[in-house]
Structure formats: C-alpha cells, structure tokens
C-alpha cells in the first residue's frame, strides 16, 4: 500500500461523507434524518458531510421499505459507492418493512437487498437515535478502513 492510499484512507476515516437514500419511507424517518443535518442536531460536528453523489460517499443511510422498483436503485447506489462502505438502515420500515410489511408492493427491510451494518429502530427514529447510529457507523467504518490498510 502506497503513501497516497494511506493518506486517502486517513482522510476518509476522519471525515466520512454520507449519502441519504429514501426507499419507500413515509417521510417520517426522512425528515428526521434531514433534521439531523440542521443546526439543532448537526451531525456535521462529527466530521460528516451530506453529499448527493454515491461515488463520493462512505456511509449510506437508508430509510423506508424496499419495494420491487426501488430495490434496483438501492443496489446500484450501493455498488457505486467505493470500498470500504457502511450501511445504516433507519426506522422500523428499513429494518423489516415495519407497518407496511404486508402491503402488496413491499419486499421488506433493507437487508433483503444489501448488507446492513447498523440498525436504527423507531417509527420514526428520533434524530438522537439516528446520530447514535451514524456514530456507530463511523466506528465500523474506521474498523473497515484500517482492515484494508
């Protein structure tokens, strides 16, 4: 492993970027995730920046249930993220399908499609819980990044 790789790895470990994808959320978890980025909760103080491009992202936050159409989008987004990467599933829906698990167009939780590292429960998950989840994801991410070195 060259010097540049080490440098990039160190930078990614100290300031991971996150991508938020709404699968089939009712917006409840969605707006709570957004609220985390705003002044009162402010996850940016952990060095986290929200980005819109999966190719820049290290942590994927997923809210909501997976359905037959968005599971492809989810899989593609996951594929496009560079290794190492961590996935956080948010809300009862992201965990198991939640209240919608029996609805006709619902596949289930996020882990039916991509591997999930952190599960954040709640309906909707509270911003504090989401921040806890992100912080836990940061630790996992550091672990994974060091393992690659």
């Amino acid at each position: 492993m060259g010097l540049i790789d080490k440098l990039i790895s160190t930078a990614r470990r100290s300031s991971p970027w996150l991508l938020h994808f709404d699968c089939g959320s009712c917006n409840g978890c969605d707006i709570e995730t957004l609220a985390c980025l705003t002044p009162v909760y402010d996850v940016e103080r952990f060095g986290v920046v929200n980005v819109g491009n999966p190719k820049h992202a290290d942590i994927l936050l997923v809210t909501g249930t997976v359905n037959l159409r968005n599971r492809e989008v989810l899989a593609v987004l996951y594929e496009q993220m560079p290794e190492p990467k961590v996935v956080v599933a948010i809300g009862a829906c992201g965990l198991s399908g939640g209240i919608f698990r029996e609805a006709p167009n619902v596949v289930g939780g996020v882990d039916k499609v991509i591997p999930v590292d952190v599960y954040v429960p709640g309906c909707p998950a509270r911003p504090e819980a989401i921040i806890d989840g992100v912080v836990l994801a940061l630790e996992k991410f550091r672990g994974k990044a060091l393992a690659v070195l």
Binding site: C26, G64, N67, A103, N105
Partner: peptide
C-alpha cells in the same frame, strides 16, 4: 413507483381502528 407500498390494500387485513395508524403513515 419508487415509494409505492400499496397501503390502501392493508384495509383488508387491518381493522378500521388499526387503519388509523396506517393512514398516519
């Protein structure tokens, strides 16, 4: 279609009181 769940159909398996929780979502 990316957020479609089909929750109106849940009325078949959730009774009219439980549906309050569903429509809230």
């Amino acid at each position: 279609g990316y957020v479609h769940r089909g929750l109106e159909k849940l009325a078949d398996i959730r009774d009219f009181r439980q549906m309050i929780q569903v429509v809230e979502r």
